[in-house]
Each structure stands twice: as structure tokens, then as C-alpha cells.
């Protein structure tokens, strides 16, 4: 369950208070909040503007620049498929095709049932293991399309908040 209202504001404030001493910037604040909440809610933009003595428009300028930030709560699970050059050569296109088919998506995004968020990533930093995908921030390497499909297929019909691994 995503926090809302006062709980959300408290979470935002707590996250901002605890992050870095000295070098507080718009970007560092946004990163902290993305880590704490998984997304940047409108309230967070106001808090960051307040904290960094800028305006909400400035914060939005930074936030919208980076594709890492999302502005809606993420789904229960986050799947990232690498299609950097190495993974591409090692067979990422086939993996990607299988993942999209399994999740019933045409491109990166959220599944309609809000269970899985799919993101394309240009490098997950494990080129030697390629092709790679990450399931809720845990890397799975040397994938075959079958393996990728198997890992995901359970999730699609799954109920409840079970780990993907």
C-alpha cells in the first residue's frame, strides 16, 4: 500500500531530513525520494522546492529531465530489461520479445493490472552476464527467452505481494 495524505508528507519529510549533510541539491533530494517512495509525488516537488530554495518549476525541470524518476506510484514489481550493446549482442532482443509477450505489453510501461512495471535499461552494469534483466532490483544473468518467460509467467497470474525471485 502506498502512503497517502499526512503519512505521505511525513515520509517525504523524513526522507529529506535524513539525506546528505552539506551537499543538498534538487537532484540529491529527488533521488532520495525516489529511493524512499519509488516515485516523486506532487507533494514531494513542493517539499524539495522549499528545502532547496527554488520554485516548483525549477524542481520539475530537473525531475522531468531524468527518465529514472517516475511521477506515479510504481507497480508491485519492477522488471528492467537491459538492451545495452553487450546484452543486445548476447540476445537481448529475443528476451525482450518474450518479456513483452508474457506481460502483454507493447513497450515499456505498467501492466493494466498494476502488477508489473517494465523498464528498458541501457546498462545494468553486468555486461559479462548478458543478457541481463533485473527483477525487483535483483539481477538475473545469462538469460534465455525461455528462462525470462518462466521467471515472469508466475507473476502475471500471481496474487498477493510475492517476490519475483
Amino acid at each position: 500500500m502506498q502512503p497517502r495524505g499526512d503519512t505521505l508528507n511525513a515520509t517525504i519529510r523524513k526522507a529529506l531530513e535524513s539525506h546528505g549533510n552539506g551537499a543538498v541539491t534538487v537532484l540529491s533530494s529527488l533521488l532520495t525520494l525516489e529511493d524512499a517512495l519509488g516515485y516523486i509525488p506532487p507533494e514531494a516537488i513542493e517539499e524539495v522546492a522549499h528545502l532547496t530554495h527554488t520554485t516548483v518549476n525549477d524542481v520539475w525541470g530537473v525531475a522531468s529531465f531524468y527518465p529514472n524518476f517516475r511521477f506515479e506510484p510504481p507497480c508491485e514489481h519492477v522488471v528492467e530489461v537491459c538492451w545495452g550493446p553487450t546484452c543486445h549482442l548476447m540476445g537481448a532482443p529475443a528476451v525482450m520479445k518474450e518479456v513483452l509477450a508474457t506481460l502483454g505489453l507493447n513497450t515499456e510501461g505498467d501492466t493494466p493490472d498494476k502488477r508489473v512495471t517494465l523498464k528498458f535499461n541501457t546498462c545494468l552494469g553486468a555486461c559479462a552476464q548478458g543478457p541481463v534483466m533485473s527483477l525487483d532490483h535483483h539481477l538475473v544473468g545469462r538469460l534465455t527467452p525461455q528462462e525470462a518467460g518462466k521467471r515472469l509467467s508466475g507473476v502475471v497470474g500471481m496474487k498477493g505481494n510475492r517476490s519475483l525471485q
Binding site: 520554485t55 516548483v56 518549476n57 525549477d58 524542481v59 520539475w60 522531468s64
Partner: peptide, 20 residues
């Protein structure tokens, strides 16, 4: 010194806009 508008998005999609 108003900062009522900003750049939004980046690369091919970059434009001028406001918060959300």
C-alpha cells in the same frame, strides 16, 4: 527572478513548460 517556467523533459522531447 520569478522562475514561473522551466525546461521540461530532455533530448528530442525537451520543451518549455511548467510544473506538471
Amino acid at each position: 527572478a520569478d522562475n514561473a517556467i522551466t525546461f521540461v523533459d530532455k533530448a528530442g522531447k525537451a520543451l518549455v513548460g511548467t510544473v506538471r
